[in-house]
């Protein structure tokens, strides 16, 4: 256990010294995804705006026709897109990086950080779109918005751990890619991204309270949408993140040298 932790920390500290590598590679990734397109990464912004625009205008009812709901759905979607993309890209991470893993001695955590940076850059485009929507929604800017920053930081801090856990899952159980893919697609509807929980019973009750993603969304969303700091959600998100880090360190420590034989 102790040696596993030492191994993991060694891998992480080596990767941190190579920060230039993962930052450069993450930029390459973003560039590659949009190579030869005119708008380039701005497509990420268009994609987000099209999605949220459709939702807000098509699903407009008296219940949802308010600045509050626009903020609720647009922030929810930013966080959800981030989580969904990060988790779905993590599962096949090691097999995607196969040629580097089999040909270089880079610590595994380099690939984890590479994906983390890539996800953050991509999210920045939807955050920009989200801010534009918030400004036009008539919600009015307030200093309480700043209260969602701790939540965002917490999610960013949890990202490398989540990437690690899902990447190992994908390396050991290749089927996980499809299972996780399905879960995340279903999750879009089971997570309160678009729907609001007003104490309904039945499945919505479970989907709200027993869904870890709810809390990840709430820590960022609640300060802006309802103007209060969601302490309960924050504490739970912190615990979930901590759990991910513990598992990630153990996996990294014990199995990092095995990955090369699996991919």
């Amino acid at each position: 256990m102790i040696s596993a932790l030492n191994g993991a920390l060694d891998d992480i500290s080596k990767a941190m010294r190579l920060h230039r590598v993962w930052i450069a590679l993450a930029h390459e990734d973003i560039g590659d995804q949009h190579r030869r397109t005119t708008l380039g990464p701005l497509w990420l912004l268009v994609n987000y705006l099209a999605f949220i625009g459709t939702f807000i205008f098509v699903f407009k009812t008296s219940d949802t026709d308010s600045a509050g709901y626009t903020a609720y759905a647009s922030i929810g979607l930013v966080v959800w897109f981030y989580l969904m993309e990060m988790i779905s890209l993590s599962v096949p991470l090691f097999s995607r990086e196969g040629s580097f893993i089999q040909g270089t001695r880079l610590p595994l955590f380099v690939y984890v950080m590479r994906l983390t940076v890539q996800c953050i850059i991509r999210a920045a485009y939807s955050v920009a779109g989200c801010i534009v929507i918030l400004l036009f929604s008539g919600l009015g800017i307030s200093t309480e918005w700043l209260l969602s920053i701790p939540g965002m930081l917490l999610i960013v801090l949890a990202t490398p751990a989540m990437v690690t856990v899902f990447a190992f899952l994908g390396a050991f159980f290749p089927d996980a890619q499809f299972i996780v893919g399905n879960i995340m697609r279903v999750g879009t509807f089971l997570t309160p991204v678009f729907w609001v929980y007003h104490g309904q019973s039945g499945i919505q009750n479970y989907a709200y309270h027993w869904n870890p993603f709810t809390y990840f969304l709430e820590v960022v969303r609640a300060p802006i949408a309802s103007g209060e700091f969601p302490m309960h959600a924050f504490v739970l998100t912190a615990y979930i993140s901590l759990a991910f880090w513990v598992i990630a360190l153990l996996l990294l420590g014990r199995y990092r040298k095995r990955v090369v034989f699996l991919i």
């Binding site: 450069a24 590679l25 390459e28 560039g31 190579r35 580097f100 089999q102 040909g103």
Partner: peptide, 16 residues
């Protein structure tokens, strides 16, 4: 091909 990115130029690959 190991450790080289097909989309990047030779120069960029040297940097990486």
């Amino acid at each position: 091909n190991i450790g080289f990115r097909p989309e990047a130029t030779g120069r960029r690959n040297i940097v990486l």
